[in-house]
Amino acid sequence: MKEKFLSLEEFIKKEKEKARKLRQTRWWRRQLEKGVCYYCGKEVGAKNLTMDHKIPLSRWGTSDRINIVPCCKECNNKKKYLLPWEWEEYVKRLKITNVEEG
């Protein structure tokens, strides 16, 4: 029997569908209710949070709870396709700045 491997495009399509289903769950609604960005820690309110994959789909991350976090649009736009360890230094600077301002 020949195994079929998904192309990156097929994989992303499949994982986006999983993410759409996850958005409808009680678990995701509870994440949003906190109103806090996972990365910068700012309180932005549930309506201003987006779903982010810590390991991006474009880098073979999955749409599982362990890989999905709520984040503000600003962080989501800045993070893009970076992996957690590539993004870590920026996040550290953000949290230090927020503590100093707060």
Rank of each mutant, 00 (worst) to 15 (best):
K2L: 05
K4D: 00
K4V: 02
L6D: 00
E9M: 02
E10Q: 09
E10H: 09
E10R: 11
K14G: 05
R26P: 06
R30L: 12
Q31N: 09
L32W: 08
L32C: 08
L32M: 03
E33D: 03
K34H: 04
V36A: 09
Y38A: 04
K42T: 10
K42V: 10
K42F: 11
E43P: 14
G45K: 08
G45V: 12
K47R: 15
M51H: 12
D52C: 05
D52K: 12
D52Y: 13
P56R: 08
P56E: 07
L57V: 05
S58K: 13
S58P: 11
R59K: 12
R59L: 10
W60A: 09
D64E: 15
I66C: 12
V69A: 06
C71W: 06
C75K: 04
C75F: 06
N76K: 10
K78N: 03
L82P: 00
L83S: 02
L83W: 01
L83Q: 03
P84E: 00
W87H: 00
E88L: 01
E89V: 01
V91R: 04
K92W: 03
K92H: 02
R93A: 14
L94Y: 09
L94A: 09
L94V: 14
K95M: 04
I96T: 08
N98I: 13
N98F: 15
V99Y: 11
E101H: 12
